[in-house]
Amino acid sequence: MNGPRLAASWTLLVFAFMYLPVAVVLLFSLNDSEIIAFPLQGLTLDWYREVVSDPRLARGFGITMMVAAPVAVLSTLLGALAALALTRYDMRFKAAFAALLLVPFLIPRLILAVGQLIVLSDLGIARSLVTVVLGQTVVILPFTSMIIASVLMRVDRRLEEAATDLGASAWSVFRRVTLPLMRNGLIAAMFIAFVLASSETVLTTFVSGRQQPLSLLVASDFRFAISPSLNALAVLIVFGNIALVLLGEAVRRRSLRK
């Protein structure tokens, strides 16, 4: 029996399986037919034209930007504080703090969403883009904290100690040594947070008001009617997301190699 060869083929198969949905969506987004089925009918870019010229989707895209950008900044900022506290400084209850950071990841998204909904309704806060930003930030915080911590853990502490020994104040050590070294981690976290925020649907459904981001428009279109233009929209979203994630990964990698 040839175990390693078998495992190699299996791995190849699994990777193909992981990318199958992306491939299928791409294929049908270019297919010249109203019906999403085989056999393929020929090439067209009409579905892309339809998506790009749809004012409703354009508005949704604008709202997604207005939500995902602040979420990315806010969750990266909080994630940086958390990662610094965990890896760089003394603090009490460090283990409890680390566990607390994971709580929003472990609670089912819909349960967290209904909890937030009750709080908003009891306090009489109207649902708006602000509530979406705050709600999403907390579920994305575990991801940004981990990404930034993974970069900080590999930064050589002796660099900071040397600066301190040479008489730099705690603030200038942070400002002139730690911050430049963690910068790539911050950028990577921000990209990934943006991607996660723009594709979040469950929590967003509950805490958003009348202004609906693109992810919710896709969700409702999908429930009512499947059209080939949804394929084109999915392709645009997927490749936008993948580009951002790979860009973030490349930036993070660069900082690890140094």
């Binding site: 992306v22 299928v24 999403i36 089925a37 085989f38 594709s199 999908f222």
Partner: peptide, 22 residues
């Protein structure tokens, strides 16, 4: 990387793959 394609897009793609005409 496929994790970052978003719930809706993934579910949509699987519907295309698994459907009767899929």
């Amino acid at each position: 990387v496929p994790l970052y394609t978003g719930d809706m897009v993934r579910i949509f793609a699987w519907r295309v793959i698994l459907g009767a005409e899929g």
